[in-house]
Design a binder for these strands. Structure first.
Lengths: 203, 203
DNA sequence: TGAGGATGTTAGCGAGCGTTAACTGATGAC
DNA sequence: GTCATCAGTTAACGCTCGCTAACATCCTCA
């Protein structure tokens, strides 16, 4: 068998280990020698697969942003109504947050380490993803202003992305339970948007 | 007038600028020369006030952790009932998140860059703070298991700490409005804990 | 007045970093 | 069988970084 027959290419193997290390110790905190060691080769050996350390981070961030957006658009398009779209968005985001913890961490932590062009691309993908959410949430909670919806969507991202912070302890819920819990918390938080209109008139 | 008469000492000035820079570009992404330049002196001049770059980060993280815990304990002690305690915890945390954005960012992002001893101290303070929340939330929502409460508390931290991610755009709510919105979202999220018991039996 | 501490400065060291250069062995094509 | 290509190695370069050393300036106060 040759290398192209293996399930994961060497490139993908490097990307996965790099994502883990970047998430654990920060982009600047990881050396190319360590990334190489994580896949069993020397540091300079990485340059057969990537143009540089920056290129690895760029590919990781563009990849996750693009996949989040693509999956989000698909789920919204397939949904029967706004409520179904919102639930699909939430479930989809939770799957990403749980399955690709390191990438979700990098996604909102190391964006500023990218070259200008890559950063603009990732930001554009992120913005489109946010818009997808904002449009759906605005339809489900028509009483809230757009500013409120936008801030609430960011807050819910923070809520859903909280999983990486709890390093796999035994005292935590399992995957299934955690997924349902996060879904309930997110829906509960957004449900508060229906009450804000009442509060607002009291000021 | 002498330097001790100024409202903020040079030390505090350095700490504030260092916090901002660390939050913006990461601990390893900021050089001592930049920190010095931010307060109008050269890089090595900082060593008259701090033992090293690590010491600045340590003081920042120990400080914010300690202040969060102290304020949290005080608010819980002063509350009349669990509901009041929870509301006070939420309001207090929001104040920190909005007023000390950079510190809140560092607080859950650069912890691993600390020396072992400092890291243990900060983690202990953080753990105590979490316990304060868990105890209160468990009393307000007695139907949820402790694992659920613990995960929910972390998720609410993620929600409340989401403010730093929205760089001061004009399309965002003001301080007062944002504070009330976050409070509503947090209460709404935790309110979902009362429904989890119902979901749970369906599995 | 002048000694001494507080708070700066510039020059430079030593380590670590990302990256390139030069070379080596295995593999598959003709 | 030879030869190109792929995927790796080690050595080394140039740069940046945190930090120290040595020196300068100002303020205070006996």
């Amino acid at each position: 068998m040759n290398s192209t027959n293996t399930a994961v290419s060497r490139r993908d193997q490097i990307l996965r280990e790099a994502a883990r290390l970047f998430a654990e110790r920060g982009f600047h905190g990881v050396g190319v020698d360590e990334i190489g060691a994580a896949v069993g080769i020397s540091g300079p050996g990485l340059y057969r697969h990537f143009a540089g350390k920056d290129a690895m981070l760029a590919e990781l961030l563009v990849g996750i942003s693009g996949r989040l957006l693509t999956a989000g658009k698909r789920r919204v398009a397939e949904a029967a109504d706004p409520e179904g779209a919102l639930d699909a968005l939430i479930r989809g985001h939770i799957d990403f947050a749980i399955d690709d913890r390191p990438l979700i961490t990098l996604h909102d932590r190391e964006l500023d380490r990218l070259r200008e062009s890559d950063r603009k691309l990732v930001r554009q993908l992120q913005r489109q993803y946010v818009e997808e959410w904002v449009a759906v949430v605005a339809r489900v909670h028509p009483g809230a202003t757009e500013r409120e919806v936008r801030a609430a969507v960011h807050a819910v991202f923070g809520l859903l992305n909280s999983t990486p912070h709890l390093g796999a302890q035994s005292s935590l819920p399992g995957r299934r339970e955690m997924s349902e819990l996060l879904r309930g918390l997110a829906l509960g938080a957004l449900g508060a948007l229906d009450s804000t209109a009442d509060w607002r008139v009291t000021y």
